[in-house]
Structure formats: C-alpha cells, structure tokens
Nucleic acid binder design. Structure first.
Lengths: 341, 341
DNA sequence: TTGTACGCGTTATCAT
DNA sequence: ATGATAACGCGTACAA
C-alpha cells in the first residue's frame, strides 16, 4: 500500500523511468518510445493514476474552475439555469463551483472574494436583489476573470450578458389581458431595484398606456421576495380595494399562485371574476386549478448559452473589445387562469 | 501592475523580508516582531493578498473541497437539501462542488472518479435511481475519502447515513386513508430499486395488511421518474380499471399532482370521489386546488445534518469504527385532497 | 529517446 | 526575530 495517491513519480520508480518521461508518455509526446508509452499507460491505468489538479493549477496559474453565483437554487428558474450550465460545462475540463448569495449583496461580495481567491477562471452571476453597485464584479475583471451576467442585468457594468426581454414578456401579457376585456389590470411587481422588476413594470405600464388605459397607483404593489408567502399580503391589499381589479399580472408564478389562492378564498371565480397571469412557466403551473397563464422563459437555454459564452472567452483569451449581449424572447402561454377572448 | 496575483514573495520583496517571515506574520506566529507583523498585515490588506489555495492544497494534500452528488436539482427536495448543506459548509473553510448524476449510474460513477481525482476531502451523495452496486463509493473510502449517504440508502454499504423513515411516512399516510373510510387504496410507487420506493411501498402494504384490507396488484403501479409527466399514464391506467380506486397514495407530490389532474379531467371530485396523498410537502402543495395532503420531510435539516456529520468526520480523522445512521421522522400533513374523517 | 533542473506558492523545519 | 531550504506533484526547457 502506497502512502497517498499515485503520482507520476510512483509510476516512474516502478518502471525505472524519470517522472518527466512518464508525463510525456501520458501526454502522447511524439518523442517517446512506443514500448515505453505502452508500459506507462498500462501501469497508469492499472494504478488508476489521476493527475493532481492542484499541482496542475499551481503550475498553470489557474484552477480550471468556473464560479456560479445565484440568489437561490430552490426555485425551478435558477435550478434549471444551473442544470443548463452544468450540461455545457460538464463535458469540458472545467469544474463548477455553485454559490448562493441568498439575495444578499453582502454575501454576494463575500462570495466574489472567495471565488477570486480560489483563482476561478471565470464567473457566471445573477446578482442579488439588493445589488446596486458592481465594483466587486469589476475587481474580478481587473484580475482577468471574465464575468458573464445572466437573467438580472447590472446596468452600467460592461461584461457579457445573457438576458431575457422582460419588457416584451410583460407587454405581451398585459396586452393580452386588455384584449380579453380586462379593464382594471393590477400588477404585483418584484423587489424594487431588480432589472427584471423594472422592465416588466415598464412593459405593464406601456401596454396600458398604448391602449389608452389609466395607470392607477393603487393597482401596483411590490412583493418583498419571490416565494408564495410574499404574495399573500399584497394580493389581499389589492382585493380589499373598493374598486377591485379584474386582472393581476404577477412578477412570477409563485406570486400568481398565491394571488389565485387569495382570490379564491375571497369567493372570486377565476378567470370569470379576475384573470391572473404569472411569469416563468414553472413546470407546476400546468397543474394548478385553474392552470396558470404565464410567460415562458427559455431557462435551460439561458444557462447553456451563458456557459458557452464564458467558455468561449476562456478559450479566446483575446483582450475583450466588445462584449456580447444576448437577449432571449419570452413567450406568453395562455392557460385557464385568464379569459380567452 | 504586477504580473499575476499578489504572492507572499511580492510582499516579502516590497518589505525586504523573506517569504517565510511574511507567512508567519500573517499567521500570528508568536516569534515575530510587532512592527514587522503590523507592516506585513497592512501591506497584505493593501494589496488584497489572498493565499493561493492550490499551493496550500498541494502542500497539505487536500483540496478543502467537499463533493456533493445528487440525481437532480430542479426539485424542491434536492435543492432544499443542497441549501441546507451550503448553509452549514459555507462558514467553514471548505468549498462545495455540486454534481448532478441525472439519475444515471454511469454518470454517477464518472462523477465519483472526477471528484476523487480532484482530491475532495469528503463526499455527500444521494445515489441515482439506477445505482445498485457501490464499489465506486467503496473506492472513495479506500482512498480515505469519507462518504455520507443521504435520503436514498445504499443497502450493504458501510458509511454514515442520513435517511428518512419512509416506511413510517407511508404507513401514516395509508393508515390515515383507511381511517377516513377509503376502501380501495392504490399506490403510485417510485422507480424500482430505490430504497425510498421500497420502504414506502412496504409501509403501504403493511398498513393495508394490518387493517385487514386486501392487497390488489392492479392497484400498484410504478412511475419511471419523479416529474409530473411521469404520473399521467400510470394514473390513467389506474382510473381505467373497472373497479376504480377511491384513494391514491403517490410516491411524491409531483405524481400526486398529476393524479389530481387526471382524476379531475375524468370528472372525478377530490376528495369526495377519490382521495390523493403525496410525499415531500413541496411548498407548492399548499397552493394546489384542492391543496395537497402529503408527507412532510425535514429536507433542510437533512442537508444540514449530513454536512455536519461529514465535517465531524473530517475533523476527527479517527479511523472509523462505527458509522452514524440518522433517521428523520416524516409527518403526515392533511390538507384538502383527502377526506377528513 | 530519455533524464535533469526548475518553478508554480506555501509552510514546516532547521538554521542563524 | 528572521532567513534559507525543502517539499507537495506536475510540465517543460534544456541537456544528453
């Protein structure tokens, strides 16, 4: 029994060779005797030799690791994005280090420092809802660590970006609600400051305006977070108004779902009394009663594309001149929680 | 501008010291002059020095990384477990490397090799549904990499384990269904071979038997996967029987949800015509119509405990004599998809 | 075709 | 109180 793991040296000793010869044999270096090569490869396989990535990393000054920072992973949205990232990065020589910021700017900064300290080769990040400044990302770039921002934009930060046209998604949804005859359309917006929140809000506002519908402040509320519970109070407030809305466009499916929940408890019929539309097209949304109308986003593809762009950057190594900005088109999916015509 | 990242040597040169002195100063070595120490620490902070983990890892023969292997992360179940793991490991010096086996034995074996090659210090794993042999885990143990198995058991493998009493959860659910007056209780079981599938099935069978109810094979079907779609066909088969069941106990909430979906489409009322109970207590289950009766599992705690046990092993370094086996108790949560009395 | 020497960044040991 | 040296495992320029 050897002490630790099998090293080049172990193989070298066994075969009466020098470690460098073994290294070369393993790498199919041209100037290596066929016999030697074969012997080395056989013994290596036999001993289950695996190169030490830390020795390699030290030598090459890189970790072969990609950092991923997301606000959370319990939603289908981010877990599907991560799955997309994994599926692209998995087959490469890179490893992925997934970090959760818990929607906290401070934790995000800490994570960035940690990943930077780890010498990750690149970072994929969707910023926390509290993130307003981007120095921490710029520091990464100064250290030659490319950054790809996905889903949630960092306005002013120059980097590769993979986003969704949230404005369009919201506009589609609200214009459809208008077309179906809804006159009093409310909006349950997301946490302020988020780019997604702002863009969807703007889509909502513009759709109303372009259709000559009044914008009523009492019909606009913002939730504090993205889970079901966060939607309850704002919805109750909405439905407690004298002039209750006949439609709600919610920032995501969880919120839409709790809106349905609250409306039902109030005795309202959906969609006859009130139409409700969400955002994300969570796999669950098909199975609610009524099934949820929502705006689909290509989450898996977003993850894959973000990863591909980062890998490309890592391959090119060209001093970045122009950053890529990819914007996916979301699509309204009409189901049973909203009127048809 | 320095070439790469700041190193001990950089600081040493700047201060006319040797790297070892700088190292000692940074580590509060007792035999270091106060002045030196202060100067070093200041410059280090100034230059934002961060030790190179790969150099450290090479020296200490370990990566300070913990591998986590899960079948998937898009379900709330595994993503919540991972969150629990993160929350425990995050504050320590360890990093987490999350890997997804896609429920495939082969991919799992590949991942184990990869993590082993990375010299991870320990591994947390919930095996794929196809995993029947555990040599790959035993190889880890031979390499002094402790393994903690969670949620899905590996029968015969000696390791720390954090499990749920699936038998009890299923028994509770089915006995409750019996008590509520259901006479024809069907079971939509999980993929065969999984410990959770087997134990829940046994709980179902025993509950029937102990209450002198017949076991009818046509009432037992197994789904191929855990997503909604996997539940549709088996449910249809169940509801196409001449003598349709008046209750379904499903392997998880997704399957239960699609059972509700199918039953509703058939015009059946829930729970009047058929009671349906799931497993997991996914956060969504409260918001379905009817809200879903299900068996709650302490997912977050499972993640935390698994991580704590692994950290303990890494700290102790004692040659393992007895493995821990922790079994959490699940709890039935009765909601509206099942009869009350 | 193969071996030697060196360095990646760090710390522990042994000197001074 | 501080410096020099060796070692961790690997790849590579240079030498043979």
């Amino acid at each position: 029994m050897r002490k630790g793991r099998v090293t080049l040296k172990d193989i070298a000793v066994e075969l009466n060779l020098s470690p460098s010869t073994v290294s070369r044999a393993l790498h199919d270096h041209p100037a290596i005797g066929e016999g030697t090569k074969k012997a080395v490869k056989e013994l290596a396989a036999d001993l289950d030799y695996q190169p030490n990535p830390m020795a390699l990393g030290l030598l090459q000054k890189r970790s072969n690791t990609i950092g991923v920072i997301v606000p959370e992973i319990t939603s289908h949205f981010f877990s599907a994005i991560i799955t997309g990232i994994q599926d692209v990065v998995g087959p490469t020589r890179y490893n992925i280090m997934i970090c959760i910021s818990n929607e906290s700017f401070d934790e995000e900064v800490t994570l960035v420092k940690k990943l930077s300290g780890m010498r990750v080769d690149g970072i994929l990040v969707s910023p926390a809802s509290g993130t307003k400044t981007f120095e921490h990302f710029q520091n990464l770039q100064k250290n030659d660590i490319p950054v790809v921002v996905f889903d949630r934009d960092c306005p002013g930060l120059e980097s590769d970006k993979v986003l969704v046209d949230d404005y369009s998604g919201a506009f589609q949804a609200v214009e459809y609600l208008i077309g179906s005859g809804c006159k009093k359309i409310a909006h349950l917006g997301g946490p302020l400051n988020l780019s997604t929140t702002k863009h969807r809000m703007q889509g909502y506002l513009d759709a109303l305006e372009q259709n000559n519908m009044p914008i009523r402040n009492e019909y606009i509320h913002h939730v504090k977070g993205f889970s079901h519970e966060d939607g309850l109070k704002p919805t109750k407030r909405l439905l407690a108004l004298d002039d209750t809305p006949d439609a709600i466009f919610a920032i995501n499916d969880n919120i839409a779902t709790s809106a349905i929940h609250v409306a039902k408890k109030k005795g309202m019929r959906i969609p006859q009394d009130i139409s409700i539309v969400g955002f994300d097209d969570d796999p669950h949304s098909l199975y609610f009663s009524p099934s949820l109308s929502t705006v689909w986003q290509p989450v898996y593809s977003m993850g894959m594309l973000s990863a591909r762009i980062l890998l490309q950057r890592l391959k090119d190594k060209t001093p970045v001149e122009c950053f890529r900005k990819e914007v996916f088109k979301p699509e309204l999916v009409v189901r049973a929680s909203s009127k048809e015509d």
